[in-house]
Design a binder for these strands. Structure first.
Lengths: 221, 221
DNA sequence: ATAAATACTATCCAAACGGAGTATCGGAAA
DNA sequence: TTTCCGATACTCCGTTTGGATAGTATTTAT
């Protein structure tokens, strides 16, 4: 039984997707969320043994968007496969979603059969599902790296950390504690702590170690 | 009428491919070559109006290999589409071929129908054909650029961490706390803490964050 | 101009952490 | 055989951290 999670802000979309999956009894939708925030909260609360194997993620959502949710969750739960399922094939979004950790990118217009086939294939062989038109876009991106801006520049904004927070995260990664950071940039250790907690909230984690994990794996530092 | 060129060092392969294409009368094989050298020479000699629209290129060839041939020819004749058609899906070759200018990458094992469909699609929409398994490899390359592969092997012993300690460090990097790690590997949280302190001593640090910094930057995890 | 972020400061509390010490057990090396 | 070491487990103690809450100043946006 493959546990699936569906994240989409529109109830109608979720129902459609569920119907498409329902044709195959191996799929079991264990979690539905209306946006990235909702998803991350629900996922965290779920026991490990009940966590979904795969997540079908829309990109256009309020609060926390799909890319950010994938970036957080794929660091926190590396075993979960994230498949973007959207109606758009916007180049930039494709790129950012994949960098964030998506292992597949499907268009909603794909047939029910095609989608379930691809998901089964992901389950069995680990090969991520990719719509042909998306595959071609990826290829083009590899061929001519559009903006040669490095991956740090591209990633450091997806969590919407403030300048100060990025600075703190940088110092945190050096293994400094609150009071050391405070002394270094001439602010109170209390303030440093407040910044850290803000960072944790934006990264959807609750400890230094987890924050650093995301920072390192997503190239924020 | 789509003019096609086939480059493969084995006559049998060329025949097989020609047969597959023959099912669609739109394809007209105008050039056959046995290696990159042969291909480039013949191509140069061909009048512009007779030059192929698409080239199906094997990679494993004597003299000038497929990647080199694509790199040269795609610069000289930008309008020609190069599709790699091979039996291997070697990561490095895929990557180099695409960088060289290949716009598609098909496996020979694909069905005749699939290949002709993909080529027709390339002709009509300009979207390059990509076998699903190849598309997934490309996606992985985009996700984690190669380069630091064996670093872990080389470095994981320089700090003389015991197996257990490496295991603990690995779990630490996932942001787990003592009790969580203890529960995961069935030992007491106290023991986990003891291991951590041993790790700190060997790494000459005195906090989780500093240990993780070394672990990440030295490729221990 | 008013609202909304952002930066900064502060305090309280419970939990987690780090450091040091002690001790048992089993295997490997002396 | 004795010694050494890794893994295990525990306690005591002081420090650090995460979380919640609350407030002010400054900048930014509408």
């Amino acid at each position: 039984m493959i546990r699936i999670s569906i994240v989409d802000d529109k109830i109608s979309n979720r129902v459609i997707i569920k119907d498409k999956l329902a044709r195959n009894p191996f799929f079991n939708v264990v979690l539905e969320a209306i946006d990235g925030e909702d998803f991350l909260t629900q996922l965290k609360a779920l026991p490990d043994d009940d966590k979904p194997h795969m997540v079908l993620m829309d990109l256009e959502m309020p609060n926390v968007d799909g890319v950010t949710a994938i970036a957080s969750a794929s660091s926190l739960y590396p075993d979960i496969k994230f498949v973007v399922l959207t109606i758009f094939d916007d180049d930039d979004k494709v790129f950012r979603a994949i960098r964030a950790g998506a292992c597949g990118y499907l268009l909603k217009e794909e047939s029910s059969q095609a989608i379930t086939d691809m998901l089964m294939n992901l389950w069995e062989s680990g090969a991520g599902p990719i719509s042909p038109s998306i595959a071609y876009k990826i290829l083009q991106m590899v061929q001519q790296p559009v903006g040669v801006k490095n991956k740090k520049e591209e990633n450091e904004n997806i969590f919407q950390l403030s300048e100060r927070e990025k600075e703190i995260l940088q110092l945190l990664s050096q293994g400094l504690e609150y009071k050391e950071i405070g002394a270094k940039i001439f602010i109170s250790p209390n303030t440093v702590k407040k910044h850290c907690i803000s960072i944790y909230q934006k990264l959807h984690v609750n400890s230094k170690a987890q924050a650093l994990r995301i920072a390192y794996t997503k190239g924020l530092i």
